[in-house]
Design a protein around this nucleic acid. Structure first.
Lengths: 237, 237
DNA sequence: ACCTGAACACCGTTCAAGT
DNA sequence: ACCTGAACACCGTTCAAGT
């Protein structure tokens, strides 16, 4: 609906209903994803949505990778930036959780993770927040970066695997996933615990345990802090 | 080179040099991946490698997803199964590390993670080992599953992001990644720590910190064990 | 500058035949 | 049973032209 915002030109002639712009492209892309899932988002499909030639897109966007980054970028930019707790450890936990929240509900995240980095401009403030909190906790610089990376890996894996599961459930809700067949053919003598759990596996693995795992990860890092000497800024918990 | 092993039929006529089989297909697929990277592995490319019609493949393999699973399956099956430590906590750490080792060096892992589950038959013994060790540590059943999932998410994310980085380095080693540009345009007043780290970022994030993060994650779970009452099987560390 | 048309070099998969 | 040939419905992107 709305047109250019940061673009160089506005609409030149009143007759034209909507001059093509990066913003309009991203809006249309988001519309397609919302309606048909991210599997349907292709340059050609997007051009059809905008009633233009596929090649017209390449005048406003370098390539498909940049389009995906721009999608994440706009999504992240429009998100509120809540104030974080004062206590360093609580702040670190909140910032790490925020990294998850910013990236959640991005069906195209998988494609971004397999093509490039998630360090898009509008995500950088979250990374900054994680690093700041980690340093405030008393971690050394390289430890703080290591902690951030561990959090990013955990978060990326959680989101990716969750997205994949959801997509599978939505796509072929009739046929059971491959996992079910693998569990069914399992032998109790070689895989006793998995066999015993096979029935409950779908229920057990569909719960949202992101928060608990994240807390465990951070607690593990805190442990190294408490064990070592530096009493830089010891929070309560 | 070698032909069918678990297939129903061997070679019928001596004249034929190699009867097409699932094994031969997977071998050829692995050959393509090793030589040209997993980006080049398509059904059509694979058929060309085997000098057959693309459709001939579909007689031995359901679809591309199954092919990828079979690739992981064969890779995992041929891996040695080392004996694990006696101490439950050390055993859990070793088993979790094993999950990583089994999945490492699988360039197509990203495609598996975004299409299906990594619970292929030959990986199940690792999952079984993680669950066994977690239960031996004294975790309740649902806690053990939660722990396994956290480990799987962390491992999946680490491998995926590492693979993506490596692919990028190999593909366009000339142009800097998007991340570099994002870091370069950063302002010190809004992102002080990231700005200060920008120079060292590539070095800091190219280190292999999988092990440290995994240990932190597990330590965090152990903490909940030590805090609670159940003194089921308290290991030393 | 911004867009079109035609083309290149691909995809996964279905369907109807062949032997 | 196992394989081929032709086709369907797509891809991302380049290149040369148009206005």
């Amino acid at each position: 609906m709305r047109s250019s915002e940061a673009g160089t030109t506005g609409r030149k002639r009143m007759g034209r209903p909507s001059q093509l712009s990066q913003e309009a492209i991203i809006e249309a892309a988001q519309r397609i994803i919302d309606a048909e899932g991210d599997g349907s988002l292709s340059m050609r499909r997007l051009a059809r949505e905008l009633s233009i030639t596929p090649m017209a897109l390449y005048h406003h966007v370098r390539d498909r990778d940049q389009l995906l980054r721009l999608l994440l970028e706009t999504k992240a930019r429009n998100l509120p930036r809540p104030s974080l707790p004062e206590d360093p450890r609580e702040r670190l936990t909140a910032a790490a959780q925020l990294l998850h929240d910013v990236l959640a509900d991005c069906p195209f995240l998988g494609e971004i993770l397999t093509s490039d980095d998630l360090m898009t401009a509008s995500c950088l403030w979250v990374i900054e927040a994680v690093l700041e909190a980690a340093l405030a906790c008393g971690f050394a610089v390289d430890e703080a970066v290591g902690l951030y990376r561990a959090v990013a890996h955990y978060t990326g894996g959680e989101l990716l695997i969750r997205l994949t599961r959801e997509r599978h459930l939505a796509a072929h809700r009739d046929r059971p996933p491959y996992r079910a067949r693998a569990l069914a053919t399992l032998q109790p003598q070689t895989h006793p615990r998995l066999c015993a759990l096979a029935d409950r596996w779908p229920a057990l693995t569909s719960r949202d345990t992101h928060r608990a795992g994240l807390q465990a990860l951070l607690d593990g890092f805190f442990r190294t802090l408490d064990a070592g000497g530096a009493p830089a800024a010891a929070g309560p918990v």
